[in-house]
C-alpha cells in the first residue's frame, strides 16, 4: 500500500511535462494572484504591526495599532455601531425583499419580463448615478418627497441630514439595488419541482402553506448563499454613504470601510488601516462561519446531505 502511495506521487516524464505546460498556461493568473492578492495580503498583515505613513519606512510597533483601535480611537466604536446597525437591518431585510420580489416575478404576471428587467437595472447602473438619483429623491430643497410635504405645508423630512434618519435612508437605498439577488432567487424558484406543489395542493395546502413548506425550504441553500454574499458586501459598504453623506451627520453614517479609507488615504496611517482591515476580515469570517454552522438547522438540501 505504501509503495502504491509513493508511486502515485512520482510523476512520469510525460506527466511532468504536462504539469509544466499546465503551470505555464495558468501562469498569467498565477502571477497576478501572487503579485496582486497574496503579496498584498501578507504585507498588510505585516504592516498592521507597524507605524507606516507611506513616505517613511515602516516602524515595528507590535500590537499598538490594535490597542489604539480598541482603546484610543474616538470613532472606532461609533463606526462599529453604525456598521452593525446597517448590516443587521439591511442584510436580512434585503434578502427578504429580494426573495419576495423574485417570488412575485415567478408568478404569471403581465409584462413579467419587463418587470424583471426593471428590477435588475439598479444593479447595473453605476453607483455614482444611483447616488445622484437618490440625492434628488431625498433632497431637502427639491426632493420628490419633501416637495410634496412642502406643498402640503408640512415640515420636510431631513433624510440625509438628520442623525436619526440618515442610516435608515441608506438602508432603503440598499434594498433598491437587489437585482442580482432577485435573479439568483428567480433561478432557484424555477428549479422547485412542480410535482411538490401539485402533491401539496392535493393534500389541501393553500398558497401560504405551499410557500412556507415548499418554496422556502427548497430555496434555502440559495437563501444562505445570498445571505453570506450580502453580509460580506454590507460590511464593505463605502460608495453610497461616501457620496451621499460623507459619513455625516455627526459621523452617523461613517461605516467601517469609510473609516478605514480615511485612515489610509486621508490621514495616511497605513499601519492602522491594515489593522482595521484585518479586524474586519476576522469578524466577517467569524460571522460567515456562524452562518454556515447554524445553516444545518434551516437549510434544506434536496439530496439529503450538504
Amino acid at each position: 500500500m505504501a509503495v502504491a502511495t509513493a508511486k502515485k506521487w512520482r510523476l512520469s516524464k510525460r506527466e511532468t511535462q504536462n504539469l509544466i505546460t499546465g503551470l505555464l498556461f495558468v501562469s498569467p493568473w498565477l502571477l497576478g494572484f501572487l503579485l496582486w492578492t497574496l503579496y498584498p495580503l501578507i504585507s498588510s498583515a505585516y504592516y498592521s504591526f507597524t507605524r507606516y505613513d507611506l513616505v517613511r519606512p515602516p516602524i515595528w510597533i507590535g500590537l499598538d495599532n490594535f490597542r489604539e483601535i480598541f482603546t484610543d480611537d474616538p470613532r472606532f466604536w461609533t463606526v462599529v455601531y453604525n456598521t452593525f446597525y446597517y448590516v443587521g437591518i439591511s442584510v436580512p431585510l434585503g434578502v427578504v425583499v429580494a426573495f419576495l420580489m423574485a417570488s412575485l416575478l415567478n408568478t404569471k404576471l403581465v409584462l413579467r419580463s419587463t418587470f424583471r428587467a426593471i428590477f435588475y437595472i439598479p444593479s447595473i447602473v453605476p453607483a455614482v448615478c444611483s447616488a445622484m438619483v437618490w440625492l434628488f429623491i431625498y433632497n431637502n430643497q427639491y426632493g420628490v418627497i419633501n416637495n410634496l410635504l412642502r406643498a402640503a405645508g408640512q415640515p420636510i423630512i431631513p433624510f440625509l441630514s438628520s442623525v436619526e434618519w440618515a442610516k435608515p435612508s441608506l438602508i432603503v437605498i440598499s434594498l433598491w439595488a437587489q437585482g442580482t439577488a432577485v435573479v439568483i432567487f428567480l433561478a432557484a424558484l424555477q428549479d422547485v419541482p412542480r410535482s411538490l406543489y401539485e402533491a401539496a395542493t392535493v393534500d389541501g395546502a393553500n398558497a401560504l402553506h405551499r410557500f412556507w413548506h415548499i418554496t422556502i425550504p427548497m430555496c434555502s441553500p440559495i437563501i444562505l448563499y445570498n445571505l453570506v454574499m450580502s453580509l460580506i458586501g454590507a460590511f464593505q459598504t463605502f460608495l453610497m454613504p461616501y457620496l451621499l453623506t460623507n459619513g455625516g451627520p455627526m459621523a452617523s453614517t461613517e461605516f467601517y470601510a469609510m473609516n478605514l479609507y480615511r485612515q489610509a488615504f486621508e490621514f495616511f496611517r497605513m499601519g492602522k488601516a491594515c489593522a482595521l482591515a484585518w479586524i474586519m476580515a476576522i469578524v466577517v469570517a467569524i460571522l460567515t462561519a456562524i452562518l454556515f454552522r447554524t445553516s444545518g438547522r434551516w437549510v434544506f438540501y434536496g439530496g439529503g446531505e450538504r
Binding site: N140, Y142, P249
Partner: peptide, 11 residues
C-alpha cells in the same frame, strides 16, 4: 436647526 442647515447644504 442642525438638520435644516445640513439639508440645505445637500442642495
Amino acid at each position: 436647526g442642525p438638520d435644516q442647515i445640513a439639508g440645505l447644504r445637500q442642495a
